[in-house]
Simulated assay, not measured.
Amino acid sequence: MLDQALCNRPPSQWLELKSAIADWLMNPILVVLPLLFLIFLPWIVPRFRWKRLWSGFATLLLITYFSAQFPLITAVANKGLVAFVPADRGQSADAIVILGRGQVFRNSRVKVAANLWESQRAPLIFASGAGDGTEIVQKLEQEGIPKTALEEEHCSQTTKENALFTASVLQPQGVKRIILVTDPPHMLRSLLTFRNVGFEVIPHKSPAPHLTQTRKAMMMFYEYMGLVKYGIKGELVPQNTAKREQPQIVGQR
């Protein structure tokens, strides 16, 4: 069972920092002006040491910031994230699991999950995510899905917690195979993380909404950084049997 006290936690410091960085990077003026200042400052101050190093580094950051927003760059980055995700071959499952990612992504995921349920791919739909779980279930009810086929948790703040908290609710019910619904860039990390806690996962990508190039670039950046972080912590490979039976929840980020 999931400890409901986990739902009352304040956002982690990492999530708050991540949100602040995203807000900053999505405002070009707040990025470009400081970088231009760093480029020209060494040449304005007469005794500034390592002028070429400081100016060159700031110039590289400025070029990287703009080039990362080119449609071709984001398309290639997205291709790298989805290339290793297996196709959904239509197998049945024990449950459909929807991962929350905010209001902008919600409607498309609800439609995808409702279609999967109506196609009798699984008898249960489970929504996971703080600020999303309850809202997704409400929208699924509006789509005509009966309450008896819906469950949710609204405590998880990260992809790892999505997996852990979902496992703590569904695995005691005998759920082993799931159809995982999330957007294409997020799918690879989600697939590996849910396998890590013992699920057999069928990935089913949900279309991403129309986003600005800056937002797309941010998504790609976070996903690649997330893969590196989770990989270093060993959270992208299946756990042993003992750990699968007792998913650890408290203290995970």
Rank of each mutant, 00 (worst) to 15 (best):
I96C: 11
A77M: 05
Q91P: 05
V76E: 04
A75R: 07
G80S: 05
R89E: 14
R106Y: 00
V97N: 12
D94G: 10
N107R: 12
R106L: 14
A95F: 10
I73R: 02
P71C: 05
S92R: 14
T74F: 01
Q91R: 15
K79C: 08
Q103L: 08
A77W: 06
V76S: 01
P71L: 00
N107W: 05
A83M: 04
A83P: 03
S92K: 15
P86T: 10
V85K: 01
A93T: 13
V85A: 11
L72W: 13
S108R: 14
R106V: 04
F70R: 03
A83G: 09
T74V: 08
N78A: 12
Q103W: 00
A77C: 06
N107H: 11
F84Y: 01
G80C: 01
V85F: 06
P71W: 06
V76A: 07
F105E: 14
D94I: 08
D94A: 10
S108M: 13
G80K: 09
D88W: 12
I73V: 15
A75M: 07
V85C: 04
F105W: 08
S92P: 08
I73F: 13
F70G: 03
I96D: 12
F70Y: 01
A83T: 00
I73E: 02
V85H: 05
A75S: 10
R109T: 03
I98G: 06
L72M: 06
R89C: 08
A87H: 15
A87N: 15
G90P: 07
N78C: 04
D88Y: 15
R109W: 10
L72I: 10
I96R: 12
V97Q: 14
V82Y: 10
V76K: 00
P71T: 01
R101C: 13
G80L: 01
V104T: 14
R89G: 03
G90A: 14
I96V: 13
V85G: 03
S108D: 15
G100N: 04
A87Q: 15
A75Q: 04
V104D: 10
S108F: 07
V82K: 06
N78Q: 11
L81I: 08
R106H: 07
Q91S: 14
I73Y: 09
L81F: 05
T74I: 00
A77N: 02
I73K: 01
R109P: 09
P71E: 02
D94M: 03
G90S: 13
K79R: 08
I98P: 08
N107V: 00
N78W: 00
D88I: 09
N78E: 14
L72Q: 11
F84I: 02
A83S: 07
F105V: 02
R109Y: 02
A83N: 02
N107L: 12
A83E: 02
